[in-house]
Design a protein around this nucleic acid. Structure first.
Lengths: 340, 340
DNA sequence: TTGAAAGCGCTAACAA
DNA sequence: TTGTTAGCGCTTTCAA
């Protein structure tokens, strides 16, 4: 197991002191007026030896590890995985590493993750949380140590106290609902996700002069296919009333897909007897038959944006531009005009 | 921005030397015979001050960063994301961190990722690669520095030269094909994934005394839905011959789902006119109608296993038990006996 | 324009 | 049984 190449070895080979080598390799030659010849010698030696700065030693001095911590609920959710991929894209660009941790939906584990990242001396933390309130103490601990924590696509409740990048849920829901209204639907049910999507749904109705009816709003958020199928079955057995409702803004793709599946199985043709619109843009939304009309969410873009914000903060540009990201309506086969 | 607590501060508070504190906190008190009272004092002080060892400083001394590098093609693929989640599960258990990097299907980027992790001084690397041959130099560089590289669910070609944990593709394909044969199918097409799955498919046929026909094997691996749909269309226009084939072992869920979709659209009932079996156990496989019969792959388990192997290696247990992991047949709606 | 020296926080010989 | 000492490899004044 041969030694890794150190600064001292490069200095030796170049016949320079380690200090000079360090300066040159960190591109501070210009500002300090180091002779071009010296620079050449140093770079040459470094290249010859394939020198790579040891970030551990550097970190000890500079108090910067070049690593950003990421806390996510679950990589198994394609939403999270996509966002993480975005963060990774931006991390490569920024030259930093991503230290990843998952915590399910457990606030206690979330706090543990944050504390663990604190101990690891990451430079910043990107957090996607359903309830950041619970781990506020850990967040504050990080902040106190100078580590920014940025909320990515998280719950809105703490948007005011923490920097964040989020999905414009209201616009997303409005877009989906308006699409259905534009097709001619008037009685549109909504499967609840959160307050903001509900608000968007209501707004779209209001804009079109359609009266809001509470009984058309269906709760019981499903986080598994089985739960979504049950919700769907209950819907057809109840609120749907054999056709009184001609369209559903399902709020999220899992539920939307379940509705399409159950409808098909019950001989209710989609979209002719019932239009269904989801939200998320998950892969399986394109695989149902008919394929799902949905609002694609910019998961990857949010990841990129969040990482960039963190880097900007570390560079001293505290331009805390919190941001709402829009979605994109993908019109596919599950929505159409109601049959008259 | 208050100082973080250091060992020296704990030593001060406990009225002990830093060395002693270090020893106690690293649980080496017993072996060195440090008095119980001293231990108590030290632990108490550490707890009072909320001391957390600085892994950067420790890393500089011990040459261990407590971080494992992970190189994956793309987190957007649920296969990769699931495996990463497994690695994370095991990493938490092992107390180490995961430094994640993606490289697409680009061998050059793969090599860059490996070199980057080398520079970061990770303790081990877990690699999922379609063609590890290309980055063998980078792998050797890591090995030379004492960093093990373990192949997770990768290509088999280099299984002999690198430690690996892989999917038992042959068994998986045999399982899927045998399921169809068991239902009574004799003319079973296969969409190609790799040599081993093909071998498993052939073996199942041979076991049942069914003759292998090359024209039933269909190439053109699809890595996008569109490509898979095209493949499916071509299949129905060609080899299927209006019903000569009663079943397909599609080799991977994306292709299987596309076949089901296209069949449905063309009025070919699944499974009564055509049975379809996939492999992967991807989320969308449960959302097609009918839901897909598939062989679920133990993505998460592979992730766990790979990380554990890496830790075992670092602990000096070089028990290189390379391992083939089996899949699990999930019988759902897309497969049934052929109508006679 | 370059080098010498100190020290980041920790661990591991070696002393005591 | 505990403390002293000497670095790990790097950056950063300060001095030359």
């Amino acid at each position: 197991m041969p030694q890794r190449v150190t600064l001292a070895m490069v200095a030796d080979k170049a016949g320079m002191s380690a200090a000079t080598v360090s300066l040159v390799l960190n591109n501070r030659a210009k500002e300090l007026g180091i002779s071009v010849e010296t620079q050449e010698r140093v770079r040459r030696a470094a290249a010859d030896l394939h020198y790579r700065c040891n970030p551990v030693a550097r970190g000890l001095r500079t108090k910067r590890t070049g690593m950003v911590g990421v806390v996510l609920p679950d990589l198994t959710l394609s939403f999270c995985a996509d966002m993480l991929q975005g963060m990774e894209d931006a991390a490569v660009e920024a030259g930093c590493g991503l230290l990843v941790r998952t915590c399910g939906r457990d606030p206690q584990r979330e706090e543990e993750c944050l504390d663990w990242l604190y101990a690891k001396h990451v430079d910043a933390v990107l957090l996607t949380s359903f309830m950041p309130a619970a781990s506020l103490p850990a967040i504050r601990r990080l902040n106190t140590a100078g580590v920014p924590v940025i909320l990515a696509a998280g719950d809105a409740k703490h948007e005011s106290t923490l920097p964040w990048i989020a999905i414009d849920d209201e616009a997303v829901a409005r877009m989906a609902t308006s699409h259905l209204i534009g097709l001619g639907h008037r009685r549109i049910a909504h499967f609840l996700v959160n307050e903001r999507r509900l608000a968007g749904y209501r707004q779209a109705l209001a804009d079109a002069g359609i009266e809001y009816a509470e009984k058309l709003v269906i709760g019981g958020f499903a986080d598994s296919l089985d739960a979504a199928l049950e919700n769907a079955a209950a819907f057809f057995d109840g609120p749907w009333e054999g056709g009184a409702i001609t369209a559903v803004y399902a709020g999220y793709d899992l539920q939307a897909a379940a509705l399409v599946g159950v409808a098909t199985r019950r001989g209710i043709p989609v979209p002719s007897a019932l239009s269904v619109v989801g939200t998320d843009g998950l892969p399986f939304a394109a695989m149902t038959s008919p394929p799902l009309t949905t609002v694609d969410l910019p998961k990857r873009a949010i990841g990129i944006e969040t990482l960039r914000r963190a880097m900007a903060w570390l560079d001293g540009q505290e331009s805390w531009q919190d941001r709402l990201c829009p979605g994109t309506l993908l019109v596919r086969g599950s929505s159409a005009a109601p049959r008259s």
